[in-house]
Computed example of a mutant assay.
Amino acid sequence: MISKINFLFYCPDIQITNCLDTVDSQHCVKVLRNTTGDKIHVTDGNGGWYLCQITDANPKKCQLVILEEEQNYQKPCRKISLAICPTKSADRIEYLIEKAVEIGLHEVFFVSTQNTYPKRVNMERMTKIAVSAMKQSLKAYLPILHDYSKLDVFLKNTKGYNQKFLAHLDHKSQPLTAMKIADSPLIFVGPEGDFSESEIELINQNGFETVTLGSSRLRTETAGVVSVSLLNLLP
C-alpha cells in the first residue's frame, strides 16, 4: 500500500461494481483532480481496505481496478455499542455521531424515553455524517445505525448483550473506569431531562449495570463521546 493517504473513498460494493458512486466520483475527479492512472484508497465499510487505480476518471462514474486488498483492516479490539437519546438540538446529536465514529464504535441505537424531545431522527442525515467521519478518520468500519425506537422496543433488542451499562449518577453507581470491560459492551446514555425513576428501574431489570462517567454532570452528547472514549481506552 502507498504510504500517504490523501483521502479515503467509500464504496460498499467495490468488488462488484469497481466504481465510485456519483458523489465520490465528483469529489475524486473534480475536487481532488485525480486522473486516469492515479491510485486511491477505498473502503467497503465492513473491514475491507482497497488500493485501487483509476481506469476511467469519469466525474459521474469513476471506474477502478483493485490492485491490493486487505480484510479486517485495523479491526477494533472491541465492538462498542452506544444507545443514546437524541437531543432537542439536532446539531448536538450530529456532533456526537461524528466524534463517536472518529473515535471508534460498532453500532448506535437511537432511543425515545419520557424526557426525549425529538419525535424522529433523520437517519439519512446520520448515515451521511457517519460515512464522512469514517472517511475522515481513515477507518474501514462503518457503524450500524439502528432506527429510532421506543425504550421498551430497544430493551427487547438488548437481550443478547452480556455486558450492559447505564450511564447514570446515583448512590448505586460504580465508576465505569473501575469496571472490567468485555469485548462487546453496550452503554446507554439518557436524555437531556434524565431518565424517570420508573425507566431506570425498568432498564436495571433488563440487565443494565449503573455506572458513572465521573463527578461532573455532562450534556447528553458529551456523555456519549466520553463513554465511547473510555470504552476504547480502558483495558
Results as ranks from 00 to 15, higher is better:
Lys4Ile: 15
Ile5Val: 14
Ile5Cys: 14
Ile5Arg: 12
Phe7Lys: 15
Gln15Thr: 14
Asn18Glu: 12
Cys19His: 14
Asp21Trp: 13
Asp21Asn: 15
Asp24Asn: 11
Ser25Thr: 10
Gln26Pro: 00
Cys28Ile: 06
Val29Ile: 15
Arg33Ile: 01
Asn34Glu: 04
Gly37Ser: 09
Gly37His: 08
Lys39Trp: 08
Ile40Lys: 02
Gly45Met: 06
Gly48Ser: 08
Trp49Pro: 00
Trp49Asn: 02
Tyr50Ile: 09
Leu51Ser: 12
Cys52Ser: 08
Gln53Met: 14
Ile54Leu: 07
Ile54Tyr: 02
Ile54Thr: 04
Thr55Glu: 11
Asn58Ser: 13
Pro59Asp: 09
Pro59Arg: 03
Cys62Phe: 09
Gln63His: 10
Leu67Tyr: 10
Gln71Glu: 11
Ile80Asn: 03
Ala83Arg: 02
Ala83Val: 09
Thr87Val: 06
Arg92His: 12
Ile93Cys: 08
Glu94Asn: 13
Glu94Ser: 13
Glu94Cys: 08
Glu94Asp: 15
Leu96His: 02
Leu96Gln: 01
Ile97Tyr: 00
Lys99Pro: 02
Lys99Arg: 14
Ile103Gln: 03
Leu105Gly: 01
His106Val: 00
His106Met: 04
His106Tyr: 14
Glu107Asn: 10
Val111Asp: 01
Ser112Pro: 00
Asn115Gln: 08
Pro118Asp: 05
Pro118Phe: 05
Arg120Thr: 11
Val121Asp: 02
Asn122Ile: 10
Met123Gln: 11
Thr127Lys: 13
Ala130Ile: 06
Met134Lys: 01
Ser137Asp: 07
Leu138Ser: 04
Ala140Thr: 03
Pro143Glu: 03
Lys150Tyr: 08
Val153Ser: 11
Phe154Asn: 02
Asn157Ala: 15
Thr158Cys: 14
Gly160Phe: 09
Gly160Val: 10
Gly160Asp: 15
Tyr161Thr: 07
Asn162Leu: 15
Asn162Lys: 15
Asn162Ile: 15
Lys164Ile: 08
Lys164Ser: 06
Ala167Pro: 01
Ala167Phe: 07
Ser173Leu: 07
Gln174Asp: 10
Ile181Asp: 09
Ile181Cys: 12
Ile181Tyr: 10
Leu186Phe: 05
Leu186Trp: 03
Ile187Asn: 04
Pro191Ile: 03
Gly193Asn: 03
Glu197Tyr: 12
Ser198Asp: 14
Ile200Glu: 12
Glu201Cys: 10
Ile203Glu: 03
Asn206Phe: 06
Asn206Asp: 07
Glu209Trp: 00
Thr212Trp: 05
Gly214Thr: 06
Ser216Gln: 12
Ser216Phe: 09
Arg217Val: 06
Thr220Cys: 11
Thr220Tyr: 05
Glu221Lys: 06
Ala223Gly: 09
Ala223Phe: 06
Ala223Val: 05
Ala223Ile: 07
Val226Lys: 03
Val228Phe: 05
Ser229Ala: 14
Leu230Ile: 11
Leu230Arg: 02
Leu233Ser: 14
Leu234His: 10
Leu234Trp: 10
Pro235Lys: 15
